[in-house]
Design a binder for these strands. Structure first.
Lengths: 127, 127
DNA sequence: CTGCATCCGAATCGATACTG
DNA sequence: CAGTATCGATTCGGATGCAG
């Protein structure tokens, strides 16, 4: 299976070990709340920093810049700076970023589909 | 879109607001590295605590119990205790947990498919 | 407007020790 | 074997101030 190497590590080959640690690094970057919500917010659109901040409920200035830098570094978002005053910076998903959307959509969809079930499970557990 | 409410909050209706904050809570629980890797490790199998620890590369005893408790609380994993000595505790995905697997699989698959691209993007960015 | 730096409290995490 | 508790250390995250 394609996901195996994310789970049981320690391959013999040095190249495989490198690829594997890289995979886990990327997975850690991407599998976090804010990164995923930013991806979802961008979707097919191009948004400015301030617009993005309005779209992602509850994110702080700092977390937004931090995660945008990380996503840019990994080549998931494209950052375009317009040399105007005041500055205008636009963010757009790259091709890999858009590819990631299917996974994020699935996650968001799953969340909403199981709201009721989870709420009931919590009630039972907390008792 | 089904994911909208995860992004721009502040619905007028009180019930909608509650459902929305619950959704964000669940999303925060689930959208984290360890939770997703545990789901992926379990898959269709039933695993003991110690086996699980061996499958999820690099997870600590503490993180594993912590995340298992959280997943159990949300009704994503089933915890079965065998009253033997030494104790034997088995974990299995519930139906909602298995449903989540499609999203996790997509995420893991995406990671491996874009390894090379991301590595190159990083090289450019870090320069 | 965007982004960087800084401070500081809060949350996370790993390591260790201890119980049934 | 599985789980809990505790303790430092690191990281996270929000708030604020300053610069381009």
């Amino acid at each position: 299976m394609v996901t195996k190497r994310l789970l049981k590590g320690l391959p013999e080959d040095a190249d495989l070990r490198r690829a594997d640690s890289l995979a886990r690094e990327i997975f850690s970057d991407v599998a976090n709340k804010w990164a995923l919500l930013i991806i979802e917010a961008l979707g097919e659109r191009t948004l400015r920093f301030s617009e993005l901040r309005g779209e992602v409920e509850g994110i702080s200035h700092k977390m937004l810049t931090q995660n945008l830098r990380m996503l840019e570094r990994n080549g998931l978002v494209d950052r375009k700076v317009h040399p105007t005053v005041p500055p205008r910076v636009e963010y757009t998903l790259t091709e890999p970023g858009r590819a990631l959307r299917t996974a994020v959509d699935a996650l968001c969809g799953w969340t909403h589909q199981h709201l009721a079930h989870i709420e009931r499970a919590r009630g039972r557990f907390d008792a």
